[in-house]
Amino acid sequence: MIKLNINDEVSTLRAVVLGRADSNGPVPKLEDAYDPKSAEHIKAGTYPKDEDMVAEMEAVAKVFEKYNIKVYRPHSIENYNQIFSRDIAFVIEDKLIIANILEDRSQEIDAIAHVIQQIDPSKIIEFPEAAHIEGGDVMPWGDYIFVGTYYGDDYSNYITARTNTKAVKHLQTLFPHKKVKSFSLRKSNTVADENALHLDCCFQPLGKGKAIIHKEGFLIEEEYEWLVNFFGKENCFHIDKREMYDMNSNIFSISEDVVISEKNFTRLNTWLREQGFTVEEVPYAEIAKQEGLLRCSTMPLIRD
């Protein structure tokens, strides 16, 4: 049995689900793109190739191996994008929450049935139909659960709005002893550098009391300021629009002081090392073209 345990983003990782990229299928039609960044690359003819993305994910698997982390992979579904395992489910405390994701992606959860079967069924939670949620918007952080959402009445107009306020309320019901703190994110179906697809596309807490943040990703200034005050301004690494677009906030913590980051994030990686982090650099620029990076493609199951 897998004994789930996740209370934050940075405690020492013991077990994780890592997505896969070996049979992504043909380049999607432009009208089928789920986000503006993928659309950009479809138009430009630079949409990532399976073999390049497989190589990138193998580099991450090697880092996990180096740190003795148990890695589960989804079973392969032919011609199906299975990279972003964080979207389909996530763990808070000892519960696995199965996300309500875009209908087209529903098979992804079946591909991790071999993992789910090892979890006590009483610890598996499915959200009600009307409560939409994806793991990229959810961050357990001690007494808090940070959640990215979009408050606007035009929520349904945005394919890039993935977690609604009903889901935020439902999370609070499920975890009454936690403070569920929501943040309204800037959404755009068409302009990639003005779209925070998930909370982890514009913010991420790190070990040592640090955090990465992109101010413009937040629609409400007070909510952004709350986070900066919570972590302390001197502990926040602010990223600009371009760095947000390149997914600098979407790195992944293996422990309080070890992170996996993209090798081209020079400014960020330099700062992380100055703060005393060990930075395991991997190539991930091809996967980034689909508006997701290291946090999106990993789903932690157990942290100490």
Rank of each mutant, 00 (worst) to 15 (best):
D153S: 14
L293I: 03
T149P: 04
L227Q: 04
S253V: 04
R20W: 05
K210W: 06
T149M: 01
S106C: 01
D304E: 15
D22A: 06
K187S: 05
E93H: 05
S255A: 12
E222Y: 12
D8F: 03
H177L: 04
F265P: 00
V282T: 01
G207M: 12
F265R: 03
N157A: 11
D154I: 07
N81V: 14
C202N: 08
M1L: 06
S85G: 02
L206V: 07
P74H: 10
D246N: 09
G45A: 08
A161S: 13
M1C: 00
R273I: 09
N195M: 08
Q118P: 00
D8L: 07
R73I: 00
A131L: 09
A130F: 09
D104Q: 14
I239V: 14
K62Q: 10
S11D: 15
P205I: 12
R20I: 12
S76G: 13
G25R: 09
V180P: 10
T270I: 08
L18E: 09
V16H: 06
M139H: 08
I101L: 14
D304A: 04
P36C: 11
I133F: 07
F218M: 03
P74W: 07
L294H: 02
D104P: 05
V63Q: 02
V54N: 00
S11R: 06
D304K: 13
G136I: 03
S85F: 12
K166L: 13
N248A: 11
K181M: 14
K210V: 05
H214F: 12
W226Y: 15
R295K: 13
I239Y: 01
P205E: 07
K289L: 00
I302Y: 12
S122N: 12
V91G: 03
G152V: 07
H177Y: 03
D120N: 15
L13S: 04
D87T: 07
